[in-house]
Every structure is written in C-alpha cells, then in structure tokens.
Design a protein around this nucleic acid. Structure first.
Lengths: 235, 235
DNA sequence: TTGCTTTAGATTGTGTACAATCTGTATTTT
DNA sequence: AAAATACAGATTGTACACAATCTAAAGCAA
C-alpha cells in the first residue's frame, strides 16, 4: 500500500490532469482514487474540493467531481484572454523581480532545457508549466494569479502535442521557445517591463500559432496527386 | 438547533466575510462555526476548503483557516489590476449579452436602487456585489472570472464605508453610481462594447476616488482656526 | 533573567460507519 | 405499447471517534 501525503496526492492529481493522463470531462471517482492511493474518502474529498477551487475540476452537488472540460467555447475564451494576462504578468514580474526568485526561475529553466535536449515531452510540459507559475508568483498579484493559473492549466493540456514534436521544424520551434524563456528571465532580472511584455507576447504568438496549426491542420489533398503545399495555397 | 443546508451555509459565510462581519485576517474556528450553525466538522471543512479556493479565506496546513487579509501590498495590487479586469469584463458582457441575463441584471439593479432609497448600506453592498458578479457571468469567460471574483471580494469589503454615506455629497455619489449601473446595463443590452468599457471605467473611477479619499482623508487642521479647505490646499 | 526542554491542552487531520440521494431497471397502470 | 412509478444498487454526504500535530505554559539549566 503506497503511503502518500495529502499535498503529494494533490500534486499528483494536478500533474495527471495536466498531462491528460486523466481526460478532460472524465469523472474523478472517489472509490477508485481512494483504492489507488490508499487514503480514505475524507481527505480525498477535501483534495477534490481544492482541485475544484483551483480550476482543475468541477463539482456538481450529489453528482460527483469531474475534470474541467475543454470545449470550443472555452478555447475561444482562452485565445481571447491569454495575451492580456500573460503580458500583464510579465510586466509585473519585471517590476517585482528579486534575485532569489530569478535564481529559482533559472533552475526550473535549466530542467526545462534538459527535458528539451533529452526529448522528454512530459517533462517539458511540466517544467514549462512550473516556470510560468513561478513567473506568476514573482509578479505577486493575487488578483491576476487565479486567472493565470486557469490559463496555464488549459495551456499545458493543449501543449501536450506540441512537445511531442515529430519534424525538425517542430523541434526548432521548441528550441525557440526555450531561448525565449532565457530572454524573458534576463528581462525580468534587468527589470525591463516593456521588454518583458514584448517577449511574453512573442512567446505567446509562437505557442498560439502551434496550437492553431494543430486544431486546424493543413487539409488532406483533394486530389491525391497534389502536394500539401499546393492544397494549402489553394485554400 | 437551526437546520441549515450546505450551500446556504457557504453563502452565509461569504456574506459575513463581505460585510466585514468576520474581520479580514481572523481565524475561522471549526468548533465555533459547527456549534453556531449545527453542522458537523466534515461538511464545514469542505466549505472552508471551498472558501479558500474562491479567495475568501486562506488555508495553512495544521494551522487552520483564516479570512483573507487586506494589507497595503494587496491594496496596491488591487488598484493596479481592477480597471483592466473590469473593463475587459464589461467589453465581453456587451459582446455576449443575452436578454435573459439582461433581465436578471435589471432585477438585481432594482433591488440595489431600493436599498439606496431606503438607505440600507449592507443591502447596497450585497446587491452591488451580486450585480457585478452577474456581469462577470454574462461575460462568460472562465479565465477572467476568478480574477473578477477576487477583486469583487475586496472591493465589496472596502466599500462598506462607502455605502454608509453621511453627507449629502456622499449620497449624491451613490446616486451617480446607481445611475451608472443603469447606463451600463443599457450598453450591454445594445451590445456596445466600447461604450460599456467607457462606462465601466467611469464607474471604477468613482469608486476608486471614494476609496482613496477614505484611506487618505483630509488631514486635521494643524491650526484649529484653519478650515479643512485651507489645509487641503496647503498640503 | 534568559533560553531551552518538557508536557498538557487544544486544534487539526483521518478512518469508518451510517444516512441521504441519485440512477437505472423492472413492474404496474393506462 | 407508452408512460409513470417503485425499487435495488451504487454513489455521495454526514457524523463521530480517534490519531497526529501544534501551542503555550511550566520547569529546569546556564
């Protein structure tokens, strides 16, 4: 029976949700989870309430808890909101930068780069999530943090495919994103809010384009003899 | 023994916190609350976790739950963030207006106006809070809502003094705020995002000035013979 | 006195039994 | 046959007892 602490279990569930190991919309069954992690229902239920409060899940009274879903309407709101929040947070992070937190950022960025170099998609996604969470923490604005949190949850879930890059071109994009992280941390450290905002928006644009490309891929060729490029130009 | 449902108790505690009936920073004692409302600790603890998730309270493991505090740093972040979020929410509310929700807004605004006319500060604060929550709901953006929620919690708590208006001038300000509500709802209904943003910022400016005036009141006259106006001009 | 250790009381966290509610199926009624 | 109802099994919600942890006061050593 694997003994596990409450905060560890909370973290484990958060990660499983972020990695799509537990699918959006699926039900978090109390009995199953208790069995799996060897805790009783009382603490588990408190964890579920907490997950709900953080936006990872949703509680319907007398009908259980389910992982937050990601429908088309949600996506629309995501694209509408992300740049504003990310830019604001970057600005505040630059204004409120302190050496201690900068060092912590660099440490996480180091593990992100390591994950990139060893091509471990899951580690990339989690490190990236953590990095951006820490930027939010450095921004230190309790009114923006909850929005940032919710954006990051869905952003990380959507990016799962991103990090499992197949082509050389996709790997190059990941490298660019990785370099952008370093530039952003430099901007925070130098306390350059405008520069931080600019970099944050570039970083967002890269991610956005990649997600859009996944959601709306190049159509299959109508005529099997056409190349993908010809089809794309025609559309 | 007053029998109370879980969601009612959740709502009651939210209102008590908003009305400063439970002071910022004070601990929410499990035993006391169980005694007071006749529920056992298990459901109460789940309510407390929920309140923490929503930003009304803060959990420190093994050290209990306390009502969110409002220190000087928090205030700074509040003033920095509020206009952006309020404006964004107003824009989205105008874009996503539906007759059903407009009707609901008008109903709450009616009860707000009634509270103003009967000079009931607590009802004003709660109606105002509810109205702005509903605007957020109509905006329908799950990424902005949590930030709006947190802003409203502290905004309502800070406004407690505002609604207990003493002078004629202060009552006139409340009237203005009330009229702004109607204008905003009209703008939502007519689907005029720019107009809605403009009105939201006016509404914010009014509230902000009032709060600032409370935090930094006119200084007492140095020389007892001076009038308040002379002192203000001299500062 | 000052600082550390011990220990009793209070508070928070967990496990388990039981109650309330919901869901889906089978039966009854029209 | 269709609709309504009743029931059984499963799931969620609550109460309470007990375990773990923290707090603060008392005692002891320097």
């Amino acid at each position: 029976m694997p003994k596990i602490t409450k905060s560890d279990l909370l973290d484990t569930l958060r990660q499983r949700i972020l990695q799509l190991d537990i699918a959006p919309g699926s039900v978090l069954d109390e009995a199953t989870l208790c069995e799996a992690y060897g805790v009783s229902r009382t603490p588990l239920r408190e964890i579920l309430h907490r997950l709900a409060g953080e936006g990872y899940a949703r509680i319907q009274p007398n009908r259980g808890v389910s992982v937050s879903s990601m429908d088309i309407e949600t996506m629309r709101n995501f694209f509408q909101t992300a740049p504003m929040i990310y830019a604001s947070v970057a600005r505040l992070a630059a204004e409120n930068a302190v050496p201690e937190k900068i060092a912590a950022l660099r440490a996480v960025q180091k593990s992100f780069r390591a994950a990139v170099e060893t091509a471990k998609p899951r580690d990339m996604a989690i490190s990236n999530h953590k990095l951006h969470e820490m930027i939010g923490s450095m921004a230190g604005n309790p009114y923006l943090s909850p929005s940032l949190q919710r954006l990051l949850i869905d952003h990380t879930r959507m990016s799962q495919t991103f990090y499992a890059a197949r082509s050389k071109a996709e790997q190059a994009l990941i490298q660019t994103a990785c370099d952008q992280h370093d530039d952003m941390i430099d901007a925070f450290e130098a306390r350059l809010p405008s520069r931080a905002v600019e970099l944050a928006l570039d970083h967002w644009a890269l991610s956005r384009d990649r997600i859009e490309r996944y959601v709306r891929p190049d159509p299959l060729p109508v005529n099997p003899h056409d190349t993908a490029e010809e089809v794309r130009d025609a559309v």
